[in-house]
């Protein structure tokens, strides 16, 4: 078209896509850190029947 329009659309789509990707990587890092619950901790808290600590 004239380069500027494409660049404008490209920055918006690319920017939002990059932010989404960054959030996804943060999310997987948090998830990974949260899932392995040490057995000792589980024994110490017998009432915590909910293994999904990431959700509330």
């Amino acid at each position: 078209m004239n380069g500027y329009v494409e660049a404008g659309y490209g920055f918006v789509l690319g920017g939002l896509g990059a932010y989404w990707a960054w959030l996804a990587s943060r999310n997987s890092r948090v998830k990974k850190a949260l899932i392995p619950i040490p057995v000792e901790n589980e024994r110490r808290r017998p009432n915590s029947s909910n293994p999904r600590q990431g959700e509330r």
């Binding site: 939002l16 932010y19 989404w20 959030l23 943060r26 999310n27 948090v30 998830k31 850190a33 949260l34 600590q53 990431g54 959700e55 509330r56």
Partner: peptide, 23 residues
């Protein structure tokens, strides 16, 4: 709509980070 999706995603990460911090 994109804003709403991003905020919900970011909010869920904040929840996870908070429970990680508590631990």
């Amino acid at each position: 709509l994109a804003y709403c999706a991003l905020v919900v995603f970011r909010y869920r990460i904040a929840q996870g980070e908070d429970s990680l911090r508590e631990r």
